[in-house]
Design a binder for these strands. Structure first.
Lengths: 222, 222
DNA sequence: AGATGCTCTGCGGTTTTCCGCAAGGCTTTG
DNA sequence: CAAAGCCTTGCGGAAAACCGCAGAGCATCT
């Protein structure tokens, strides 16, 4: 089976134009696009209604919603909504994000069929992904694969994330303790919070709370 | 004067393809491109040597240098090097970055002619920029203009940047003091460092050093 | 020259963080 | 059931950060 009708959801017009132009060279008859998730969903709905649905959705993850109020604001939500009305559609995510957790979550929770990182060879990888899907295979580009395979040493559980988030928001250890008690999150003694932070500083090779927060912030872990 | 020969330096192929395709629709005869700064400089040199130089350079700012060792790694350096060998060339920067300091610095130190932020309407803005340059005007897209016009309340001087950088790198106040003394940066007493941090926390509405570091990190100020 | 204002600096006391220690609770193991 | 192991918690002392105060140094103004 070869894709004949593909939809591209991507807000940045230079990227959008580039993807659509590339798909034009791949013997795909019909390529349409939207720069907003709401538009994308509408057009995909319309195609179903017209009994000529899209076979493949290529979607970005983050969208600029500054100048328009959109119901759907992220690629993940768009994919979820599209799958509700058309479960059979194939989905490739095309994004700059190469975070292990993000990619994993999309394959697990949204059952996407491919993940390609934008970059120097993004379009070439996208072409490979489409080929793979044509052969009923899933596809992850090399960068995404590398990310998925790396040992997740630097990953935070929910408790650690909450703790660091509060720390980053200016809470003192004693205030974090109070907050945890109020929300029944355990352990919640000041001593335990101290220990956890001490362990995290060890893990991340940080010598101060400030450095720890700097690291997890730049790594996008909180 | 209308541009006949334009060079595009942009590492992400989907963007690159999009820009080149767009320029193709704008009655520009010759458009060439590179995905690495070193290549870009080489090709621009070659064009001068062939007595058929480029009239306009459209360049990104950040380049992926993971899989190749390049001499020139940033757009700013590329522009600087290109201007050395061809001062008359016009330059438009096309980047996602919308930070006031970055944009200002490029107009001041590199004498660029236009700045366009990638985004929903990036390509349209790029077209306007080219038009403006054709009329011997400089151009900044609306997003960049907005960024330039906003009061720079949240901006750091060199001293503050250095201080916060050290803090983010795990230095204690006493260690920062020692470091400043070693590098003859004043004021360098622990008390002065305390005061400066206290003032910064006030400015940024932060109650702990950790929160302060979180804020300046997410705002991209360090 | 003296008065004024400013920043930088050191001191001392309070608050917060850090860290080892030991008691209590819970589960696992023999 | 007791022994062992692990986690949680509180305590106490050391280290670091915080903050007001006052003196020193320097430039400006009268």
């Amino acid at each position: 089976m070869n894709f004949k009708k593909v939809f591209v959801a991507e807000d940045t017009d230079s990227n959008n134009f580039g993807i659509v132009a590339k798909l034009g060279t791949l013997n795909i008859k019909e390529v349409n696009q939207a720069q907003y998730c709401d538009d994308a969903l509408l057009k995909i709905k319309k195609a179903i209604f017209d009994k000529n649905p899209y076979q493949l959705l290529i979607s970005d993850l983050s969208y600029d919603n500054t100048y328009r109020k959109n119901k759907i604001t992220t690629g993940e939500t768009l994919i979820s909504e599209v799958k509700k009305i058309q479960p059979s559609i194939k989905v490739i995510v095309f994004s700059v994000i190469d975070k292990q957790t993000t990619i994993q979550s999309l394959f697990t929770h949204q059952q996407i069929d491919g993940y390609v990182c934008k970059g120097t060879n993004g379009l070439k990888e996208l072409e490979r992904a489409i080929e793979a899907l044509n052969n009923s295979q899933k596809y992850t580009c090399p960068i995404a694969t590398a990310s998925l395979q790396q040992k997740n040493l630097l990953q935070l559980n929910t408790y650690e994330q909450q703790l660091l988030q509060l720390l980053a928001n200016g809470y003192k250890q004693s205030e974090i303790s109070i907050h945890f008690k109020k929300h029944s999150i355990t352990p919640n003694s000041v001593r335990s919070i101290e220990s956890c932070l001490s362990k995290l500083k060890d893990d991340f090779n940080a010598s101060t709370p400030a450095q720890l927060v700097h690291l997890v912030t730049s790594l996008g872990l909180i």
